[in-house]
Amino acid sequence: MRDYLRLLGVFFRISFQDDAAYRGEFWMRLLATLYALAAAVVGLWILFSNTDAIAGWNIYEVLILIGTFHVVGGVIRAVFAPNFQRITEEVREGTLDFVLTKPANSQFLASFRRIAAAAGLESVMGLLIIGYGISQLPEGSSLYTAFAFAFALSCGLAVLYSFWLVLITFVFWFVRIENVTQIFWALFDAGRYPLDIYPGWLRIVVTFIVPVAAITTFPAQGLAGRLSPGSLVVYALLAALSLYASSRFWQYGVRHYTSASS
């Protein structure tokens, strides 16, 4: 475990050094993050000048939801997406062999080697939005709701990580799978509003096929004090199950991977 934490630190340092060579990129990221923030604020302003609740969520609850959406979006852009992209490149070029022969867990290496720290700015912004949203909620949030939020968010991230791991594993069979990420982003975008507003089939897709509900609506519900301890237990079980299943699938994929040359 200590070794893996140390490895994670090394990966972070190397990625950071890589990024430091492209400082312009950092400023563009910052700008993109500010755009996203401004868009969220302007959108909310237009929406809530016409109503005072969307599917029963008031403006501050929706704000918390949008904050959560950006926290998660930042994690995806900083960790999941870059590693996914790297693996697809390596499978195409045949250099994945060097990764698989390293004396460390292959799933760990596949998931965390590349960390785009600048993209994490979006998560920071999301946390600030959440903080503001909480401060405006009528009754101060109790310790339990804060815990329910953090807990549901971690479970959601675990589910989402599993989802991306499955995507990565598919690269062994379908090299062009990266196109599928575009569909993911389209569906993920739906997570910026309470999922109750969507028609039934779309709700099913974003709850069960692409885990958008698990990462945005559920944690935000936790903050708004709408999550019972029972549902937290269910989330934890779901998260554990998805981690286990995706990990098995990865191992299966690695066993069937035949490199580029053979």
Partner: peptide, 16 residues
């Protein structure tokens, strides 16, 4: 992907 925006906002404004 380009259909996502219109469909999402269709749903939002319908709800409102």
């Amino acid at each position: 992907w380009s259909l996502a925006g219109p469909i999402i906002h269709l749903a939002v404004w319908t709800a409102v």
